[in-house]
C-alpha cells in the first residue's frame, strides 16, 4: 500500500492538469491521487466536505498528503480535518508545498512506497530544482 495524494484547488481544470503533469512521472504505476477542486456548478472555489471525501477516498490505510493552492483551499483543507474520523485525521498531512512542483515530487516518492512524512518533505522541497537552476 502507498500513501494517497489529495489535490485541493479553486479550479478543477488546474487540479486535473497538475495531476496529469505529475502522472507523467508514473508510467504504468498505480497511485491513488484524488482531486477536490472547484464549486459544484463548475466555478472557482473550494468545498471542505469535498476535501474530506477526497481524503477518505485516497486513504488506503497508509494515510494521505494534501497539497493545495491558496486562500480558501488552505482553510477548506483545515476545516475538512474536522469532518474526518480521528484515525484518518491522524494519518493526514497538510503540506505548504508549491502545488505543481510539490505534486510532481510527491507522486514519485509516494509511488515508491515512502512514508507520508517522506512524501510531504519531498513535496516541500519542490522549489529546490528551480531555485538551483535560476541561481
Amino acid at each position: 500500500m502507498t500513501v494517497g495524494i489529495v489535490v485541493v484547488s479553486h479550479s478543477r481544470a488546474l487540479a486535473d492538469a497538475a495531476v496529469e503533469l505529475a502522472r507523467q512521472m508514473l508510467p504504468g504505476r498505480e497511485l491513488s491521487v484524488e482531486v477536490a477542486a472547484g464549486t459544484e456548478d463548475g466555478g472557482l472555489g473550494t468545498d471542505a466536505a469535498a476535501v474530506s471525501a477526497a481524503i477518505e477516498a485516497a486513504d488506503s490505510g497508509e494515510g494521505t498528503v494534501v497539497l493545495m493552492d491558496l486562500g480558501s483551499a488552505v482553510l477548506s483543507a483545515e476545516t475538512a480535518l474536522e469532518f474526518l474520523d480521528d484515525e484518518v485525521r491522524g494519518r493526514t498531512l497538510l503540506t505548504a508545498a508549491p502545488l505543481v512542483e510539490g505534486l510532481v515530487g510527491a507522486v514519485v516518492v509516494a509511488a515508491g512506497g515512502a512514508s507520508r512524512e517522506q512524501v510531504a518533505a519531498e513535496a516541500e522541497r519542490g522549489l529546490a530544482p528551480k531555485q538551483a537552476q535560476l541561481g
Binding site: G45, G71, S72, S76
Partner: peptide
C-alpha cells in the same frame, strides 16, 4: 456544514 460546502471562497470555512 452547509456554508463550508457551498460558499466556495474563504468565507465558507470562516463563516462555517
Amino acid at each position: 456544514t452547509t456554508l463550508v460546502s457551498k460558499v466556495g471562497g474563504a468565507s465558507g470555512p470562516l463563516y462555517g
